[in-house]
């Protein structure tokens, strides 16, 4: 089955991105396809490569990048929500791409299920 995932909160402040990540890992482990992960609202902050948590904490941005690399995930950051929060191409972590909200609608159309993680 093809899943779309929408992440609406940034890293650390809320559990949403962690939950979405765990969901994605479990879905891939079960042989499902992730059609796209779309980052919206403060969720765009997950793509910030300058993210640097303490060493004993998880690096959420790096986790997403690694998952994308391992599974060729399409991870899209909303351009408008990103610009509003200073998330631009020059600070994007590997695996993230900037595109329009149309990519969210497209994910809703093409994926069998769209799962929203927010707060």
């Amino acid at each position: 089955m093809k899943f779309g995932i929408l992440v609406n909160e940034g890293p650390y402040q809320h559990q949403a991105s962690d939950s979405a990540y765990q969901f994605a890992v479990a879905a891939l482990a079960k042989g499902h396809e992730i059609y796209r992960v779309f980052f919206y609202n403060d969720g765009v902050n997950n793509a910030n490569k300058l993210t640097e948590p303490p060493q004993d904490d998880r690096n959420i941005t790096r986790q997403w990048s690694a998952l994308a690399a391992a599974h060729n995930l399409d991870m899209v950051v909303c351009v408008a929500a990103g610009l509003r929060r200073g998330i631009k191409a020059e600070i994007l972590a590997p695996g993230f791409n900037i595109s329009g909200l149309g990519q969210l609608i497209q994910a809703g159309i093409e994926a069998d299920r769209l799962v929203v993680f927010g707060d």
């Binding site: 765990q22 969901f23 479990a26 879905a27 079960k30 499902h32 769209l114 929203v116 993680f117 927010g118």
Partner: peptide, 20 residues
């Protein structure tokens, strides 16, 4: 359920609605 169970639930239902 665990995360795998969460995935199964999503697959088994028509759609998912989040009450965020």
């Amino acid at each position: 359920v665990d995360y795998g169970g969460f995935v199964d639930l999503v697959a088994e239902h028509h759609h998912v609605q989040a009450w965020v």
